[in-house]
Amino acid sequence: MSSENKDFGKNKAFLIDMTKCTGCRGCQVACKQWNQLDAEKTKFFTGEGYQNPPLMSEYTFTRIKFRDYEKNGQNEFAFYKEMCMHCNEPACASVCPVGAFVKTKEGPVTYDAKRCIGCRFCMVACPFGVPKYEWSKAFPLVRKCTGCYSRVKEGKKPACATTCVSAITYGPREEMIKEAEKRIAARPEKYLKKLYGAEEAGGTSVIYLTALPFDELGFKHVTKRPLPSYTWQALRLVPGIFLTVGSSLSLLSWFTHRKERIAKEEEMRKSGSAPKEG
């Protein structure tokens, strides 16, 4: 697990304003191109409404989720760009037995395929359901959004943020939160007065602004506490428990065997045939 940084405000973060999203899916295409991901054979209306592909997968690191709803008697669309949230304290990084996930100091949570043993604990642990598996392969690995770390490292914006004409802003996390709050204050009638990602899972590097309530758009309800702390409160006891159990059992055995040992020594002394060392 990485503890390179504790001040997450300086991390680069996405501010995704879903009210400005037009559902063009340029981000999906840019993501596929930059990460050289294969196309998926899909059909319309296999998922919910117009969204396509229906789900994120080993070939699709981000996708726009469509939601139909009615406003003033008109049919309207609302969108949700699903992607890796790049948590401040990622669950995937904490559970990975080989430390294949790292929260970089720039912000993105990266995955080292060369270390991965394919146990899929990250998939179980991720509260957002982000890591996906190469189910089609005999020796599969995990795939997920890289936060375009290779670009960010060079001072560029991620592919999706570069392509998006309106909805995605990319910059230091504290500035993104300030900007989001400014937008809510400026147009209170337009926005839900909450930020998704500001506190979810202890804070993430993707912040969402929406018009509709989060659960209606398909955002997952996630605890506000950083997930690694849930397991660490048990795991931190491990060395102590090991020593306690080990030493108390040793002590116990010493006492329970003492009687026998004394009796034996006694017997030996009586018979007089015992060697000096016993």
């Binding site: 037995p97 430390g99 020796f139 690995l141």
Partner: peptide
């Protein structure tokens, strides 16, 4: 069950004491 069983030994090299899976293995 592992995707990469040939890398099972990685747990012994790349320690992550925050992972219950590391501890169990």
């Amino acid at each position: 069950d592992l995707g990469q069983p040939q890398r099972g030994w990685h747990t012994m090299v790349y320690w992550n004491p925050h992972s219950p899976m590391f501890e169990v293995s």
